[in-house]
């Protein structure tokens, strides 16, 4: 039986008068890769941050497995260790080496012994192809390498689900590939993930479902084939046409 890992019901976020998004509903099943696309400023990042409670939603509910994480008595720190997050600007801890970045949560959140944490951290770095760079500081790594450490840091916590917030938007074009490659591998290995991205090639190839968000609403949701070839809404068609053209141009220039 297909089991939902994450269920979102009527999620709403406002800042004062301004509504970021309203009544968002989404179900993510085990092993799904969901790609969220849409113009900038439509609340995609805020939506992701609400999912792991980094930002408090104003209304609606979220379930992680069978636990309602928007309930009042929930231990947020407990919830967050089960939801991995990868940021646009990597956000590695600048004073720690790659290895220490991955180890930090294992020691202080999972309370693993130093030896066990070290072994696990090395394993995770190897998984993203950075075994050699374990002792490098973020300032000594390329953007692509930093982002892969960011992924390893999140993976090390053995999360139920991974959230990617525009993981390649801050990267030079030639560094995007190595990060997408790691994400592609994760997806094929069955990791459940939600990815906000403008990488349409990645979306088309890897996504089980694509969600098109605009102005705080989900306009359309479906398989890549449905969205790319048979979009139901004019806006979806327009947006995909524009961004694919842009993406294609960028590829030619590069």
């Amino acid at each position: 039986m297909i089991k939902p890992i994450l269920t979102v019901k009527n999620l709403t976020k406002r800042y004062g008068e301004h509504t970021v998004f309203e009544n968002i509903n989404l179900t993510v099943n085990e092993g799904d890769t969901i790609v969220i696309i849409g113009p900038s400023g439509t609340g995609k990042s805020t939506f992701l941050r609400c999912l792991n409670l980094l930002t408090k939603p104003n209304g609606g509910q979220i379930w992680l497995d069978d636990q309602e994480i928007t309930a009042k008595d929930v231990d947020e720190d407990q919830v967050r260790q089960h939801i991995g997050m990868v940021f646009q600007n990597f956000l590695l801890f600048n004073h720690l080496t790659a290895l220490e970045n991955v180890k930090l949560g294992l020691i202080h959140v999972k309370h693993m012994s130093k030896e066990a944490a070290e072994a696990k951290a090395r394993e995770e770095l190897a998984r993203v192809g950075l075994a050699e760079q374990a002792d490098h500081y973020p300032g000594q790594l390329s953007g692509g390498q930093q982002q892969r450490v960011g992924i390893a840091r999140a993976l090390a916590m053995d999360p139920r689900i991974m959230l990617f917030d525009e993981p390649t938007s801050a990267l030079d074009p030639e560094l995007i590939g190595e990060v997408l490659e790691v994400m592609r591998k994760l997806s094929f290995e069955g990791m459940t993930m939600i990815v906000v991205t403008h990488e349409m090639g990645f979306a088309r190839e890897v996504a089980d479902r694509i969600v098109f968000m605009e102005k705080g609403q989900i306009v359309e949701e479906g398989t890549p084939d449905q969205l790319f070839y048979h979009p139901q809404h004019e806006r979806t068609r327009e947006f995909l046409w524009k961004i694919t053209e842009l993406y294609g141009k960028k590829e030619k220039e590069a």
Binding site: D77, Q78, R80, F87, L91, H108, V109, M157
Partner: peptide
């Protein structure tokens, strides 16, 4: 940096 730290459950 605080946000990234909270995101791993600290």
């Amino acid at each position: 940096q605080m946000m990234a730290a909270r995101a791993i459950g600290l």
